[in-house]
């Protein structure tokens, strides 16, 4: 029973990782840029979500607004920065990305934005029921996270595998020049990719904000490297890999903490897993190159 409950908790943790890492790996797939500033989008999503929820009182509307604003924010990042660096060496957009992340984190701490204090995000389970069985249980908040993650992943899956846009992303991720040579409008395609990936990050920010009932300007710090670790573990640019790596990491973190306690800080476990993975499978779980 304890085992199943630990697995249930790990599943919820994995959901938040998945949403964050999915967007990052989608962007990496097409642009081959480690978009560290993705974590800023996550924070902005949480911030917009809490503002919208405070004013409107409806979680689902707040989530939709937060995802939309995050998507637009991501597209602006692409058009204002990466767009001009597409043909630069990979270190250039990486440095730009780190710079943007630091700048946005700093900006968000200004009093006219989020300030230095935490805001509560008391959306609870958004009206969803808790689930209790003899073997495991989910709180209403956990049900909310699970439900939103499953719905969003299903939407991403359909877009990726059934629509022309998804096919253009697959093509561009394999060879941008060739994709362009068969008519893919790379500007549009990459902007749409950023929009969806950033909307997912915004959703992750909202869900984590609700789960911890706390939103603050530096909440993106931890996900900035956790998501990076996950996409390396999963195989750069692989969405199924990111999902698998999120699950594995969440399970390892949960079970290590549950079995040996906080001998190690929980978040350092991710780095240990990363080091082991790089030693034995440097291309990641489902990596192509």
């Amino acid at each position: 029973m304890l085992l199943l409950q630990n697995l249930s908790n790990a599943l919820i943790l994995a959901c938040t990782y998945i949403l964050m890492a999915a967007g990052l790996t989608m962007v990496y797939g097409v642009l081959k840029v480690l978009h560290i500033a993705h974590a800023s989008v996550y924070t902005v999503g949480a911030f917009v979500g809490v503002l919208a929820f405070t004013r409107l009182g409806n979680f689902w509307v707040a989530l939709a607004i937060a995802m939309f604003v995050s998507g637009i924010f991501g597209v602006l990042i692409y058009r204002s920065t990466y767009f001009y660096l597409l043909n630069s060496p990979r270190t250039v957009p990486l440095i730009a990305s780190v710079g943007m992340f630091v700048m946005f984190t700093d900006l968000l701490q200004k009093p006219f934005l989020m300030g230095a204090y935490q805001r509560a995000f008391p959306a609870g389970g958004a009206g969803l029921p808790a689930v209790k069985t003899a073997l495991f249980s989910f709180t209403a908040k956990q049900v909310l996270i699970l439900l939103v993650t499953v719905i969003l992943l299903a939407i991403v899956y359909v877009i990726l595998t059934r629509t022309k846009l998804g096919l253009s992303w697959q093509a561009a991720s394999m060879d941008r020049d060739m994709a362009s040579a068969v008519g893919v409008n790379l500007n549009q395609s990459i902007a749409a990719n950023f929009f969806l990936g950033s909307a997912l990050a915004g959703a992750a920010g909202v869900l984590v904000g609700v789960y911890n009932n706390s939103v603050f300007a530096t909440m993106g710090d931890l996900p900035s490297y956790k998501a990076f670790i996950i996409i390396v573990l999963g195989g750069m640019g692989s969405l199924p890999g990111a999902i698998l790596a999120s699950l594995i990491l969440a399970i390892v973190e949960n079970f290590l903490v549950a079995s040996i306690g906080y001998v190690l800080p929980r978040d350092s476990i991710a780095f240990l897993v990363l080091i082991l993975m790089l030693m034995f499978r440097p291309n990641g779980l489902l990596g192509r190159e």
Partner: peptide, 14 residues
């Protein structure tokens, strides 16, 4: 991929 692309850019691609 080649068949699908001449319809860009449109939101219909989504």
């Amino acid at each position: 991929v080649g068949l699908g692309m001449p319809y860009y850019p449109t939101s219909a691609a989504l």
